[in-house]
Amino acid sequence: MPTRKLLYRRRFLNRPRHHTGAHVIARVELVQYKKSPWYVDSSLRLADCYRVIELDFEIRNKTDVKNALHKAKLLRDLLDDFTKSLEDAVEQWENKR
């Protein structure tokens, strides 16, 4: 089964000595099984110590392309908004201390 690995990143989420096991793994591959057409097999795994979720972004046709890109962009935008709100909350928290 030919596979072209386009992305594999594993990053620990917590700073050193601040809990263990929290990580993210991002994986994107082009795969061909025997004589079938190539497809995109990709996933995003998020783990926070004991909880793990894995989101699949498999692409086999044009409908899958739209859905996978929509899902990835929505997550990106939501994470940007979350980060900005968290920064604002920290600033307000520091001002009230």
Rank of each mutant, 00 (worst) to 15 (best):
A89M: 04
K71N: 12
W38C: 02
K34Y: 14
H19F: 08
F82L: 14
T83V: 01
K71R: 15
S42M: 07
V52F: 04
K73R: 12
N61E: 11
L7G: 06
A72T: 11
I59T: 01
R45K: 05
V40K: 02
L30A: 07
D48G: 04
V52D: 15
T63L: 13
P37V: 00
I53D: 15
N95T: 04
R45G: 10
R27H: 05
L86P: 12
F82Q: 12
D77A: 08
R10D: 01
K96L: 06
S42I: 01
F12K: 15
D64Q: 05
T20E: 11
D48H: 11
N67T: 05
I25E: 13
K66W: 03
P37I: 00
R4F: 15
T63K: 05
D80Q: 10
R45H: 08
S42Y: 00
E58R: 07
L86F: 15
K66H: 09
K73N: 15
P37K: 10
N61P: 01
Y8F: 10
E87Q: 07
V40R: 03
R10S: 06
V40W: 07
R97T: 04
E91R: 12
V31G: 07
E29L: 05
R45F: 09
Q92R: 02
L78Q: 11
S36H: 11
R17Q: 04
E94I: 08
L78Y: 11
K34H: 12
Q32F: 05
C49N: 14
H23D: 02
D80M: 07
D48V: 04
S36T: 13
K5P: 10
R27K: 01
A26C: 10
G21A: 08
L75K: 00
E94H: 06
S42H: 02
H19R: 15
P37A: 06
E29R: 13
K5R: 10
G21T: 09
D48I: 05
T3H: 03
A89L: 05
A68K: 00
E58S: 15
R97H: 01
N67M: 14
A47S: 13
P16I: 02
K71W: 10
T20R: 07
Y50N: 03
R17T: 06
E54H: 04
V52K: 03
L55A: 12
K71T: 09
K34A: 14
W38I: 11
S85M: 14
L46A: 03
P16N: 06
H18N: 12
V31T: 08
Y50S: 07
H70Y: 15
M1P: 15
N14Y: 13
T83K: 14
